[in-house]
Amino acid sequence: MSQEDVTLLVQQTLDGDQQAFGQLVQLYERDVYNLAYRMLYNSNEAEDAAQEAFLRAYANLERYDLARSFKTWLLSITSNHCIDRIRRRRLTWLSLDEPLPPHPALTSDVPNPEQATLDHERNQIVQELLEKLSADYRLVVVLRYWYDLSYAEIANMLDTTESAIKSRLFRARQALAKEIESQPIPFFSPVMEGS
C-alpha cells in the first residue's frame, strides 16, 4: 500500500470512518506486535501493549503529521509505551523463573514443522540475547534489524541524534558478542550451520 493510500485511510478515519482505521490496524498489526514482543518478550503483555499503541494512535490521530510515515509514527508510539512498561516492571514482582510459553505465532502460522522448530529455536535464542540488553539498546537493535530503519529515522523517532544511535548500536553489538562468548551454548550449531 502506498503512502497516499495510507494518508487516505487516515483522512477517512478522521472523517469518522472507523472501518478505515480497521484497515490500518490490519496493515500494521504485524509491525506493531513484533516490536512489542521483541521489547517485552511475553506474548500476553505484547498483545496488550500493541493494542494500547493502536488505541493511542486512534485517540491522537489528529496530531499525526501527514508528511511523516504513518508506520514510523505508530512504531514511535509503540516504542514509548513499551519502554514505559519495562520501567514499571521494576515496581512489580515478577517471577523470572517462570518458563515463558511458546509463542502461538511460531507454532501455527508456519509452512512446515521443521521450519516451525527452526524459527522457534532461532527466536528463543534471539530473545534471550535481546533480554540481556538494556531497554534503550534493545530498542535500537530491534528497529535497525527488523524494520530496516536508517540511523536518521531511528534518531528522529527517538528524538535523539544519529551519532547517539550509532553509539547505542555499537555498544549493543559489543554486548551481544560478549554474551555469545560467555555462553558457548548450542548457539550457532542448529541455527547458523546451514546458513
Binding site: E29, R30, D31, V32, Y33, N34, Y37, R38, S43, E47, A50, H103, P104, A105, L106, D109, D119, R122, N123, I125, V126, L129, V141, Y145, W146, R173, L176, A177, I180, F188, V191, M192, S195
Partner: peptide, 14 residues
C-alpha cells in the same frame, strides 16, 4: 550475531 538478527523473521500478531 548480525546474520542471526537479520535472518530472524518478524512475529505475526495473534
Amino acid at each position: 550475531t548480525d546474520q542471526l538478527l537479520h535472518e530472524t523473521p518478524m512475529i505475526n500478531a495473534p
